[in-house]
Simulated scan of single mutants.
Amino acid sequence: MRAFLFPGQGSQKVGMGAELADVSPVAREVFEEVDEALGQKLSRIMREGPEDQLTLTENAQPAIMANAIATLRVLEREGGLAIADKGNCVAGHSLGEYTALCAVGAFPLADTARLLKLRGQAMQAAVPVGEGAMAALLGADVEKAEALAEAAAQGQVCEVANDNDPTQVVISGHRSAIERAIALTKEHGIKRGILLPVSAPFHCSLMQPAANAMAKALDDCPPRGFSLPLYANVTAAPVSDPAEELGLLVEQVTGRVRWRESVLAMREDGMEDFVELGGKVLGPMVGRIDRDAKVTSVVMMADIEALAKEIG
């Protein structure tokens, strides 16, 4: 059984999608449709930068989605494979959950781009720049991270944001609380804490204004029926009901990304083969969660051709 995975923020880089766009009209169509939906030349920023423009949350989120959907569309139209036929479920990391939903027909491409643009803007606006922060805890399991976050909070917000894999947990909250947490890592048996280069504290309760904005946006543009079940970030469980998924997408803005648990749940449900489309971030995480899982990362045309040959 096979799961298709879609990456989240941090997987963006200048030049993303350029090779696909150069060789595939199908990929170019995706980038052009996203540009038109957003009323900006996002594809140019993806191809040429500058990097600081690409890493802006409101640009990075739709860019990562566009790159992954372009990869998927080339696989489907030029590789002759439909993920509804070749896959058993989908999952995405944070914004990747929207990409996954687009991939299985819950959102049209243009709507997905607009929702992610708004999501990025709302998340950036929720907390004044400099007041929030995130840190990656290396050599930490989720229990150690929770204990550290509780000790560092001291009346402020300091919460586990991403349970990525057995060796990496991300915390999020007020900047001073995150800095306290980094200083306390050794005392909690954690190898190291690294402040992340992000402009807002994602996936913690400080994001509530952004969750409110997404609730309104999703009420106006709700997900439709989808062709494969999706493992939701906040529950680490499969969902097939669009109305339920709408609520989970709102909850996701402030909630924990339970990626490690999601992968374990997919394995328990029989998934053996994990294919990451449009990035090389989730594949290594899956490998650290379960060494027996088969992992493939698909980014370039050669990767698409190899996958089409293997599973076609």
Rank of each mutant, 00 (worst) to 15 (best):
M1G: 14
F4R: 03
L5C: 07
L5S: 03
S11C: 02
A21T: 02
D22R: 04
V23R: 01
S24I: 02
V26K: 03
R28N: 02
V30S: 01
V30C: 04
F31Y: 14
E33S: 15
V34L: 10
E36W: 09
L38H: 10
Q40S: 11
Q40P: 03
K41T: 06
K41I: 01
L42H: 06
R47G: 01
L54Q: 03
T55I: 12
T57V: 06
E58N: 06
A60H: 02
A60S: 13
Q61A: 02
Q61E: 04
A68R: 02
A70L: 03
R73H: 11
L75C: 05
L75T: 01
G80P: 07
G80N: 09
G80W: 04
K86Y: 04
L95N: 00
T99H: 04
C102Y: 08
V104Q: 13
D111F: 05
A113M: 11
L115E: 04
L116A: 04
L116G: 03
L118G: 02
A126H: 08
A136E: 15
K144Y: 13
A149I: 12
E150L: 14
A153P: 04
Q154Y: 05
C158G: 06
E159Y: 11
A161N: 12
N162V: 11
T167G: 14
Q168P: 14
E179H: 09
A181P: 08
E187D: 15
H188P: 09
G189P: 14
G193R: 13
L196S: 13
L196M: 15
P197M: 12
S199F: 14
C204W: 08
A210I: 02
A211M: 05
D219L: 08
D220S: 05
R224I: 07
L228G: 08
A232F: 09
A236G: 09
S240L: 11
S240M: 12
L246I: 06
L249F: 12
V250F: 07
E251P: 05
Q252V: 07
Q252E: 09
G255E: 06
W259E: 09
W259P: 10
R260V: 06
E261I: 05
E268L: 11
E268G: 15
G270K: 06
L277N: 00
G278D: 01
L282W: 04
A293W: 13
S297L: 00
V298F: 00
V298E: 00
D303C: 00
I304D: 00
A308Y: 05
I311R: 03
